[in-house]
Design a protein around this nucleic acid. Sequence first.
DNA 1: TGATAAGGTTACTATTAGTAAGCTTGTTTG
DNA 2: CAAACAAGCTTACTAATAGTAACCTTATCA
Lengths: 111, 111
Amino acid sequence: MRNSEECNPTTYQNDCDCFHEMIEFIGKRWTGIIVYRLLNGPKRYHELLADIQGISDRLLTERLRELETRGLIIKNVSEPGSRKVEYELTEIGKELEGIINAILKWVQANG
Amino acid sequence: MRNSEECNPTTYQNDCDCFHEMIEFIGKRWTGIIVYRLLNGPKRYHELLADIQGISDRLLTERLRELETRGLIIKNVSEPGSRKVEYELTEIGKELEGIINAILKWVQANG
DNA sequence: TGATAAGGTTACTATTAGTAAGCTTGTTTG
DNA sequence: CAAACAAGCTTACTAATAGTAACCTTATCA
């Protein structure tokens, strides 16, 4: 990621592009709640579609691809002949839990 | 905020609308970095415009209004005759620091 | 007095999201 | 064995949001 040498502010002074990129990436419509849902463990496409109120199939596909591209989730196709596809957080993806929990905490206190 | 009684998950199972709303609000284009910048203390309109690489005046105005509406910032117009306007985080706004820091921490470890 | 800065607004274009339909390859049911 | 349904998408189109450019008013400053 660009500019990561500038991402250790004691005060919040430099632009910190990687922070900017990251907050807008997980804040992108539906992305956050997909990650939140996957923190329970792997899920199938239609499970996510059913779990997440209001998301469309097109956008779910799009967001899953973006998360995959960033290395936050992996797509497991168990047996190649079958239709069984599972989406799972990677180790890096699982570390998003800290962010999710910080938001939940804020919401509980102030939301 | 709607649904806040469901916002205390030990596992991440319910939809938790307020979480969804919040992550997309602060992840909305430019909002996160505006908050990040205001954590240093109050700033004027043109200071923010100069500090934040790439933001346009129109969007800065729009985001500041949204943050104001949510009660995360206040607009201080010091002397009514003058042009001096400062934007400042409210107490609730300042508590966003936990979220900002969680993201910075993730970026430092994994970005 | 003329120029520049603050704090915007308005009009328009481009990008992103949402809706609807359809498609292919299983599996399940009658 | 056929028909119906489910999984996991893709394509085409409309609506909403972001970005760009120009302009405006009121202070202050040289």
